[in-house]
């Protein structure tokens, strides 16, 4: 599974696409965020961090798998 990164999450991770190693089991949005916070503590300091699955805002329990497009959505600031 690969995670698309935008805005400040791209700066924190240092790239715009983060592969999740095959030996890491993340089955839900909550598990993904827990893994990310361990790897990149800076992500936990953000005002909020949403996850989009297939270009739609996901819930904590939304299931993830490698066929889905997954992205981190830090606080938006358009307009």
């Amino acid at each position: 599974m690969e995670i698309k990164l935008f805005g400040i999450t791209k700066d924190i991770v240092g790239r715009d696409m983060l592969p999740v190693p095959a030996n890491i089991q993340v089955h839900t949005v909550t598990e993904l965020k827990e893994w990310l916070y361990q790897q990149y503590p800076g992500l936990e300091k953000l005002s909020a961090l949403a996850v989009a699955v297939n270009q739609t805002y996901a819930e904590d329990g939304t299931a993830l798998d490698s066929t889905k497009e997954v992205a981190l959505i830090p606080p938006v600031s358009g307009g």
Binding site: G7, I8, G79
Partner: peptide, 14 residues
Amino acid sequence: LIDELKKSVPIWKK
């Protein structure tokens, strides 16, 4: 529309 755009549309400003 502008109020909601600022809340939910995934665009970021640096």
